[in-house]
């Protein structure tokens, strides 16, 4: 049973990790603690509904539609909401993302109605049997795609010129501006990538159940994941997501579904007390 919980936890955790990675990308670039990340994930699920059901696009074009749609949404959010309020204190920026989440929810409910929808994408739905362990092919697909996306992002972040500029901007905004880096473009790209990562997570979550704005509640588990892993840390976000997935499965399985929240949020509180920069984050040093 333990191995089964671990496999399921890692699969779910991979999706959380993907959403959490999007959160970290946005935070690193713009220092915005994005409470709308769960709803951006939901938007991904509804982009899939639009492409697959309403437009009747084939699967590869559906994927392209989701990614392009999410990218445009991220860029629009940056230029319309984040950039004009750049340099504001933490609280107004947080309030913006909370308001954004509420607005996105209302817009989705207006367009698609409040009732959940069924979306069946041509993704594997069978089972792998490894000894006593039975693994859902959809879980495996979700985990593999999540890991591929994470890997792709890390390569982009570490090896590409755009990634280098993104890191430079994250490390020192003023220095980046003085060096002639077009910071707006970099930040908009960060929002686009963060939204795309969340959207991919949304597509997998809506395959596990129904397409609904309530998926946001599951997507918001990315928040404890990034706080535990470290707000600024890319590997931290991924490992935080995996940790949350594992805790969720083990606590629900061995104690009670209600214990899940205790075992996720108590470690979060402890980390905030003992190591506020997270397990893999770096302590920020202030210079006088």
């Amino acid at each position: 049973m333990l191995s089964q919980f671990i496999f399921s936890g890692l699969a779910l955790g991979s999706i959380y990790g993907l959403v959490a990675l999007g959160f970290t990308v946005i935070y690193k670039a713009t220092q915005v603690f994005n409470f709308a990340q769960g709803m951006l994930m939901v938007c991904g699920a509804y982009f899939a509904v639009t492409a697959s059901i309403h437009l009747g696009l084939p699967f590869p074009l559906t994927i392209a539609f989701i990614l392009v749609g999410a990218g445009i949404l991220g860029i629009a959010i940056y230029f319309l909401l984040i950039k004009p309020l750049g340099g504001q204190a933490l609280l107004p920026m947080i309030m913006i993302t909370i308001a954004l989440s509420i607005i996105l929810r209302a817009v989705i409910e207006l367009i698609y109605g409040g009732a959940p929808l069924t979306l069946r994408l041509p993704l594997p739905s069978g089972v792998f049997v490894l000894g006593d362990v039975r693994i859902s092919q959809l879980h495996v697909t979700a985990a593999v795609v999540s890991w591929l996306c994470m890997l792709l992002f890390i390569v982009f972040f570490r090896r590409s010129r755009a990634g280098l500029l993104m890191r430079a901007t994250a490390d020192g905004y003023e220095a980046a501006v003085l060096s002639g880096i077009r910071v707006d473009r970099i930040n908009a790209a960060a929002w686009a990538i963060g939204t795309m990562l969340a959207a991919i997570g949304g597509v997998f979550l809506c395959q596990l159940q129904l397409v609904s704005v309530e998926l946001e509640n599951i997507g918001l588990l990315a928040l404890p994941a990034v706080v535990i892993g470290g707000l600024q840390s890319v590997p931290g976000a991924i490992l935080g997501g995996l940790l949350v997935g594992l805790i969720e499965q083990l606590a629900s399985g061995y104690i009670s579904p209600k214990a899940r929240d205790i075992f996720i949020y108590v470690p979060l509180l402890l980390i905030l007390f003992i190591r506020p920069w997270g397990l893999f984050g770096q302590k920020e040093l202030g210079r006088v």
């Binding site: 089964q4 919980f5 779910l12 979550l205 596990l208 599951i218 629900s252």
Partner: peptide
């Protein structure tokens, strides 16, 4: 839970 993401434990 009403907002469960997975029913493996159950």
């Amino acid at each position: 839970k009403v907002v469960a993401a997975d029913a493996t434990p159950q």
